[in-house]
Nucleic acid binder design. Structure first.
Length: 567
RNA sequence: UGGGGCGUCGACAAACGGCAAGUCAGGAGUUUUUGGAGCUCCCAUGUGGAGGUUCGAAUCCUCCCGCCCCAGCCA
């Protein structure tokens, strides 16, 4: 993209960037970065940041780097860098040849630290962690200065070099910035900038025995990469004075840090700590469990990258803490799939229907539309025969007033097929459960219209029992029963929805679905959007329900029940 | 009781001293061979509160109230 686009929806960050470009700040260039720490899987909250950073770069004719903030080898791993790359790519963004690691800059960062020592702005401190905490003060009390604060430049240089050389054990020494122990901003109370950590790093191996802290590494990494706008979340607002301080001390290229409110989503959790608990304690099957808000989970569930990008655009960007309701995300995937997904008929809970006046040996092929929203997607044939399955939910022996579907004596349409009328109900002698319906069909209604113009109030989906494929369909509900998990109890796990997955193993789908590839998405007519799971095989299809269709009847039924309730 | 932020509809979110956008959710209707989709309409005499400035305030000023973040050698 050579020419900047006019952003469709602006926000306060784009306003700042627009202004900066207009004023020719940074020579009018725009360079952003997405800087994950490779210590966990990306989730939908990260996609907000990804869309923001890559989106702004694209809109303003700039570039966005992918940079791994890998300054703490004790918690990071290549497993995560691989998943992060895959997820960003899947979302549709391209960092070109600009994939960087903070660890690429370790030598340069070390030199910057030496510079800081030389100008008397950093010192080696021998305080241990407990002492440092004590010296730091509290939110309301000032800190006090370390007795090591006034070491000579020479001594600091010597000690720092020996820290690097591995002469000291973990935790024995730190390099600290010399700022102000009385600052109201705790980040400015002589923060640690290097710690001794004798840990093998996933990229630099055993080369380093000291590692820089976030505040020190991040601003200089941004500076080295000539980032113009360093966009991060609100909790780093307090760190901005430090970010600026480091860069100012050394007089190097100075990007601008801008903070925005991270995404919160109702009925789920978006913190690495909580997500890892769900995985490790077995509440879900893994990082890519379709109920997880991770990019990997959402992808397996069947969400499209387009729908996620769209979601990120709709939620906006601001500085106010907020929680977006899950139905907005669901709206975004329905909107996308309504236009693009092939329609197909699938019966989740089959109820056997015998068409008594349809001959036993006959089969015919009926024409069905693949997508009414897009005629270009064409037509297909679906087989019809004497024995069919319909949805159990589509029959009621004693229908409430607003129930339009099949009931004894009532006529309905089978989609793309015929009108049928229910003439009998077969029940299990033991349980009384309805196990079969006897019906008749009207041969003149082939295709679904009656020549005499009579109407039916419902159209049902169905499959031909003798032709259908067996499939497993996994239905998902919210992972948490409360919009804000743990709001009442303080522990998010008390609100885990123990009924968030239902695997239906005896579903029947139309034969055209044979061989459907993992990842392909369909609308099961009247039910929702479904995606073929990687667990699927030639022998057995497995589908994930991405999201239901909007269900007006369910809503009506709910109010019926509510009104009957108090009696 | 230190420092930094933030308060506009049930949920998001515009507005940049001049008629409180839009979206999701919700409601009503229309249409329909998906109770889907579409289309139409409704949903903030009011912007946390109280004062003030102004012809005019969500916007500027003062005070108050509420919420979030910070006391890792995490990011």
């Amino acid at each position: 993209m050579n020419n900047p686009e006019i952003p469709k929806h602006s926000d306060f960050i784009r306003d700042i960037v627009t202004e900066d470009v207009r004023n020719n700040k940074y020579k009018g260039s725009v360079q952003t970065r997405f800087p994950p720490e490779p210590n966990g899987y990306l989730h939908i909250g990260h996609s907000k940041s990804i869309c923001l950073n890559f989106g702004i770069a694209k809109e303003f004719g700039g570039l966005c780097n992918l940079r791994f903030d890998d300054t703490n080898p004790s918690r990071e791993d290549v497993e995560y860098v691989d998943s992060i790359k895959e997820d960003v790519r899947w979302l549709g963004f391209d960092w070109g040849d600009r994939m960087f690691y903070a660890s690429d800059y370790f030598e340069q960062l070390y030199q910057y630290a030496v510079e800081l020592i030389k100008i008397g702005k950093a010192y080696v401190c021998d305080l241990n962690a407990d002492q440092m905490r004590e010296y730091r003060g509290t939110l309301t009390e000032q800190g006090k200065e370390s007795q090591y604060r006034n070491r000579s430049v020479e001594e600091n240089l010597d000690l720092f070099q020996r820290m690097r050389a591995g002469e000291f054990p973990d935790g024995s020494h730190t390099l600290r910035a010399k700022i102000d122990m009385t600052s109201g901003n705790i980040n400015m109370r002589d923060p640690v900038i290097y710690r001794v950590m004798r840990q093998t790093h996933h990229r630099t191996g055993d080369k380093w025995r000291i590692y820089p802290m976030y505040d020190f590494a991040h601003c200089f990494s941004d500076s080295i990469e000539k980032i113009t706008h360093s966009i991060c979340t609100l909790e780093f607002e307090d760190h901005r004075p430090l970010y600026d301080w480091f860069l100012d001390q050394l007089g190097v290229y100075h990007p601008q840090q801008i903070e925005f409110a991270r995404l919160n989503l109702s009925h789920t959790v978006l913190s690495k700590r909580k997500l890892i608990q769900l995985v490790e304690e077995g509440y879900v099957s893994g990082w890519d469990d379709p109920r997880m808000p991770t990019i990997a989970g959402i992808r397996r569930r069947g969400y499209t990258p387009e729908s996620i990008r769209n979601f990120c655009e709709r939620i906006g960007v601001a500085k106010r803490d907020s929680t977006v309701e899950m139905p907005l995300l669901e709206y975004c995937i329905r909107e996308d799939l309504n236009k693009s997904a092939s329609r197909v008929m699938a019966v989740l809970r089959p109820l056997r229907v015998v068409i008594e006046n349809y001959s036993e040996n006959q089969t015919e092929e009926l024409d069905a539309i693949n997508n009414p929203e897009d005629p270009g997607m064409g037509m297909r044939k679906v087989p019809f025969s004497r024995v069919l399955y319909i949805e159990q939910d589509d029959f009621r022996e004693n229908p409430p007033k607003q129930f339009f579907r099949l009931a004894p004596g009532r006529e309905v349409r089978l989609r793309y097929a015929y009108f049928i009328k229910c003439t009998g109900v077969v029940k299990d002698e033991q349980t009384g459960e309805v196990i079969e319906l006897r019906c008749t069909y009207d041969p003149t209604t082939r295709g679904g219209d009656a020549p005499d113009g009579r109407k039916v109030k419902a159209t049902l989906h169905w499959v031909s029992a003798g032709h259908a494929l067996n499939a497993e369909v996994r239905l998902y509900d919210y992972l948490f029963t409360k919009a804000t998990p743990g709001e009442d109890s303080g522990d998010f796990k008390t609100d885990i929805n123990m009924d968030s997955i239902k695997a239906l193993k005896n579903c029947s789908v139309e034969p055209g679905l044979a061989g459907a590839a993992p990842g392909s998405r369909y609308q099961f007519e009247r039910l929702g959007y479904f995606c073929v799971d990687p667990d699927s095989s030639e022998q057995k299809l497995v589908f994930n329900r991405i999201v239901t269709l909007k269900d007006t009847w369910a809503k009506v039924e709910k109010t019926i029940k509510k009104n009957e309730g108090p009696k």
